[in-house]
Each structure stands twice: as C-alpha cells, then as structure tokens.
Design a protein around this nucleic acid. Structure first.
Lengths: 368, 368
DNA sequence: GTGAAAGCGCTAACAT
DNA sequence: ATGTTAGCGCTTTCAC
C-alpha cells in the first residue's frame, strides 16, 4: 500500500479516463499534491500516529521527536486535513450560521459577536445567506447539514416545511435568532419584533402625532422579511388601538429595505397626506433615506416631520439630527448565542431558557 | 462512541468490506446518530453505490430503484456527508474567501458577486475575516487550508511571511483581491488604490483648492489597512507634486475608518487650518461622518468645503448633497473573481491576465 | 513514548 | 443497471 514517490502502485488504467471533461485533482498543480500526514511521517521518520499526536497533544511526544516532526511539517508546509480528521473524531469544528443578508451591519455584528466566542474554542463559522428567500434558506440548510456542523444557527422562526424538518432532524443544537418563537425548534436567542413596533408607535403617539406613516418592504411568494413585517404589523395594530388612521402604513418593493425605499416612501406618503406628522421605518436604512429626502424637500426634522427607525445602525447616531430608533444589542445577541451554542455542544445542555430575550430599547434622539 | 464489533481481537484474514456476516445496527438511523449512506442502502435494499448514484447521477438508476432510494432518503432525512465524499473525489466544494471585515458593504458586495457565480456550480463560500489584523489573516489562511478549498481568495497583496508561504504552497488557485500586486502569488483581480488617491487629488486640485486635507486610519504593529494607506499615500504624493501643502493629511485611530473618524477628523483639520477648502477621506464612511459634522457646524458643502470619499457606498448617492467619490464596481469584481476561479479550477487555466484591473472611476456629485 | 491495525462515510474504477 | 473492491487522510484503540 505504499505509494510514495512517483505514482508507483497506482493502476495504470487510470490513463483511460482522461476525457478532459471533469476537472481532476492534478489538473492544476501537478507537482504540488498537498502533503499528507504520511509524507510528514516519512520525512520525520516516525509513524503517522506520532505526527497526529504532535498536533493534538504535543506533550505526549518526546521533545527530540517533536522537533523532527516540526521540521518536516514546516518543510512540507503541512496543514492537517480537518475533513479527514473529523470523519473519525466526529467533530467537524463547524458552526453553521444562516443569515438573510451580509449587507446588513446588524447581522454582520451578530457574526462578529459569535466569532468572538467561538474563535478561542477553535470553531469555524460556516456562514451562508438566504437573501430573504425562503427556498434559498432551505437550500442553505441542506448545504450546511452536508458539512455536519456541530450546531446550526438560523435567522427567525419561519422556515420552509422541509427546512424545519431538516433542522429538527439535524441531531445538533439549533438556535433561531432575532425572534422569539412561540414554538422554537430547539433554542432561540432574540427579541420581540412586535415589541419594536409597539415601542415605536407608543413613542410617536405620546408625542401627540396623529397622521402617522410607516415604511416597510413588501413580500413576494418567496421573499419575505418576516421580522420586518412583524414590526410593521404591530406598529399598525398599535395605531389602530389608539384610534388612529392606518392608511399611511406602506409596504412596497422587495426586502431588504434600502435608502431608496425611504426616499420614495416619503414621496408616496406626502402625496397621500400632505399633513404627515411622523414616520416609522422598519429599518434605520430606510429612515436615513427618508431623512435625506426631507432635506431635499426642505422639510425640517423634527419640526415638520418626526422620523424614527429600527436597528440603531452606526449611521443613526451620526445623522443630523441624530435618528431616534429602537435598538437591539446585536453584538451581545451574537455573543450570547455563541455561549449558548458552546454550552449546548460541550455539556449537551445549558442553564439558559429555551427562548432568551435580549430585549429592545427606545433610543430617543433628535429626529422625534 | 461505542465501537462496533467486527474488529474483534483475533486478526481475521481478509475481511470483506461489504455486507459483513456480523450484523450491525438496525436499518433505521439510531436516534442519536446521523443517518449514513449505509442506513439508506439497507432501507432501500440496494448497495451503497446505488444510493451514491442516486445523488450524483440519478439517470443511471432505474426509476423503480430510484423511487425506493428516494423513500429511504426522505424517511431518514438523509443528507450525504460532503466531507466524507470529498476525501475520495478530492473536491471539497469549498472556495475560501478571506476579507478584512464583513461590516463593509463593499466587501459584502464582493461576497455577493462571488456567490452569484459559484452558487449554480454548487460551490460553497467559506468566508473568514481578519479584522485588518495580519496575524489573524494568517490564522484564517491556515484554517481555510485545513478545509482543502478548491481555490482561495484573499484581500490585498500584503500578507504575513508565513501566510504567503502557505498560500504559495496551497496547490490551488489563489486570487488576491482589491489590489494590483506587482508580484502576485498567483492571480489578482482588483484596482489600483494608488490611482484612487491620484484621481481624488487631481479632482480636488482641478477645482482650484489649495488647503486640502485628507483622513485615514493609523496603523499598529498588527493592524493595517494597506489599501487605504495606499490611497492616502498617493493622494499625499500628488499634493506634493502639485506643490501643495501636505500637513493636512491625517492618520489616526485603528482601521477601519468610521463615521466618527470623519467627524473628529474635521475638528482636527479645522483647528490646524481654519481655511480648509477640501477634504478627501479614504472611505465614504468617514466622508459621510465628516459631512454630518459639517452640518452641525453649519459649514455648507460644497460652498465652504469640498468633500470626497472612496467606495461609492450606497449612502454616497443618497447624501444631501450627494457625495463625490471614487467608485469601484465591487459586485463586478466579485463576479469576475468567481468566473476566474471557476475557469482555473475546471480548466486549470484561464484567458485572464494574471492581474486583472477592474478600474476606478471618479463619480462626480454635489459635494465638490 | 511510539506504532500497527481498523475504520470513519463516501466514491472511482472495475466487474457483472 | 447494480454491485464489489479498495482506498481517500485521518484518529481511535490497544499493544509494545
């Protein structure tokens, strides 16, 4: 079974199957086959096991031996193949994370918070994003599962039927993020998007506004921002409960909402109600776009129009006037999720409740 | 993790690989263990190869058989283990991507452009980020290599010594992004950050400004934004060449630059030179922060101060006045990189030059 | 402290 | 159309 130098030992028939169709391993770097543990062991004149120990538990290797292995490893630029290793250890070292988008700094913050916790424990985040598409999320779940992650983190409580089935049968901890599922698949760390809508409405109403508008994205069969919708719906309900009009609650376009959503939204609202007094955008991004449009139209904030958003994106505090918003500590959300996941993997359990609420808070600033 | 028997103490000669005499676990997947191809094969009464073909080339399987396999797959919620598969195929299906940060929508756009190309070909992006730390980048490179990606994409041309060694020995295509290395490790798709600085300086100078400032992040031993620095340096050189003062070229704080960098930077510059006429920020983000600070100080743009940035972030066009900037099509950069990488993997070569320049363009808007 | 044997879950290359 | 054989690169277990 020796098959070191040259290709001795390999069946010569291999030549047959070379119809340039499929890319073969050697296609690109003929001279450069990746070094294996066997190459190292031979160079260092030790067994493969000793090389393995050198990486997993160096103390078990005699210093002199260790040094020889180190030399060989360095000479060959050897990096152990984790995929091969995990086959035996049954630990992939992957934590899967499926987000709606990467282009949202709040979600990026979650990834950052998670990484902080996972890095020292040598887990690697396997990040995927669904572009707010339910079918794409399902595809991502399957892709992730194929990599045997030790835990899987998804966004929200709404998934495709098959996606849910896959998650339930995953056999590893599952965490749903940024929501408070009434019936979590396994665990959840999030906040109430309905609370966000209520807090926003309460704030605007308490300021005495009557003609209150709102801006959100629409939805297609496949693309939905469930959490944004929840914020909008609860906002609308709160308006209704207060006996206020709800015909200024706008949904249009595809998620995620953009600056342009906010700018265009203002135009629509103003046409519908010139005496518009306040607007809640389900994302700071739309709120900022709207504020810029106000500027173009010489509408002074908050004197002529009160504006608030959601997310407390970096730009919110920097705006002039600074944007009132409903904030969530996404960094912390990521860290808590990381801690939970690590507990779940190592202890198989955690003191945390099945559903953890990190809460939301009104961040009152100059735009209202 | 109980071992199965079959490896008994006695050395059996030539044990058959396939259906051993010794019965193993029952056909159904044990509650606690992910189903394997063997579980499926037993449930469907076929060999493992047939199950394998069902996934890789269903047409080779008789419809009736296919149906039985499908049933079993579905009943067991079986998802093939890609790590195990790649051991044999020598194709991990991973493309590694190492970015400085996820919190930058331009880099997020690169990931998006890449995904567009790679998705249909069933590659999975393995994303890592370095937080602008050189040592962390090195660590990421090693982590990635351990997953045997079929190509590895890194940002920039500056890496740690060992990082470079690892990349050179990777044995797979390596693409350096967002830079134009004079001596690329393998391939590069990017633009000239020095051009950016020159274009910015030329623009501001052509407008007749004399007291021109600039804002960038500083650097620590480990944290550097090489590309941002290149933009700043070439900007400074252009100023010098034009015989203009360069004492208003500012660097401070850690990368990446933030809104706050821009706001604080303006204060410093104004203190140093009350007659400041124009500012170039190495990132739109800092430029936007600076514009907001202008607003607070009732400095009118562009009348009192011309401002320009880099990156053409979404917010740039939405500002009031809209921000003049130097733009790069990062989406396209991602797509081109994707196409290149796919060519390189499948054909082992590509018509592309070793270094591809996607170019930069001055986007003249209202802030100058 | 080190090594030999066995096998993780999968598939390429052959047989039928 | 389907099955058998022989590993892929690594680590577990157990022997020395």
């Amino acid at each position: 079974m020796t098959r070191q130098r040259g290709t001795g030992g390999v069946k010569a028939k291999k030549r047959l199957a070379e119809p340039t169709a499929k890319p073969r391993a050697a296609a690109r770097a003929p001279a450069n086959r990746k070094a294996t543990i066997r190459d190292v062991s031979r160079l260092a004149h030790v067994s493969r096991m000793t090389v393995s120990r050198y990486f997993s538990n160096p103390d078990l290797v005699l210093p002199a031996t260790r040094e020889r292995v180190a030399q060989a490893v360095s000479r060959l630029s050897y990096v152990p193949d984790r995929a091969a290793g995990s086959l035996t250890t049954r630990r992939s070292g992957f934590i899967a994370l499926i987000l709606p988008t990467l282009t949202n700094s709040n979600f990026a913050a979650v990834a950052k918070g998670l990484t902080e916790i996972l890095r020292s424990l040598n887990y690697q985040l396997l990040i995927g994003y669904s572009s707010y598409s339910i079918s794409e999320e399902e595809r991502q779940i399957e892709l992730m599962l194929a990599r045997r992650p030790e835990a899987i983190i998804v966004t929200g409580e709404q998934h495709s039927r098959r996606g849910t089935t896959l998650l339930m049968g995953a056999g590893v901890p599952v965490v749903e993020l940024a929501d408070l599922p009434s019936r979590p698949i396994d665990r959840a760390v999030g906040f109430s998007n309905r609370d966000v809508g209520r807090v926003a409405a309460a704030h605007l109403i308490s300021l005495g506004h009557k003609n209150i508008g709102a801006i959100a994205a629409g939805r297609t069969d496949d693309m939905v921002d469930f959490r944004g919708d929840a914020r909008l719906e609860s906002f609308e309900e709160a308006l209704k409960t207060a006996g206020l009009r709800t015909d200024l609650v706008l949904r249009y376009g595809e998620p995620p909402v953009s600056y342009a959503h906010g700018a265009a939204g203002l135009a629509v609202l103003l046409e519908r109600e010139p005496k518009l007094e306040a607007v809640f955008a389900i994302s700071d991004i739309a709120a900022v776009g709207l504020m810029m449009e106000c500027r173009r139209r010489r509408i002074e904030i908050p004197r002529d129009l009160a504006v608030m958003g959601f997310g407390d994106f970096d730009i919110a505090a920097e705006m002039e006037p600074p944007l009132t918003t409903v904030g969530v500590n996404f960094d912390e959300l990521g860290r808590q999720t990381g801690t939970l996941v690590v507990d779940l993997i190592s202890a198989g359990t955690s003191a945390e409740a099945r559903v953890t609420n990190v809460g939301v808070s009104l961040i009152r600033r100059g735009s209202t």
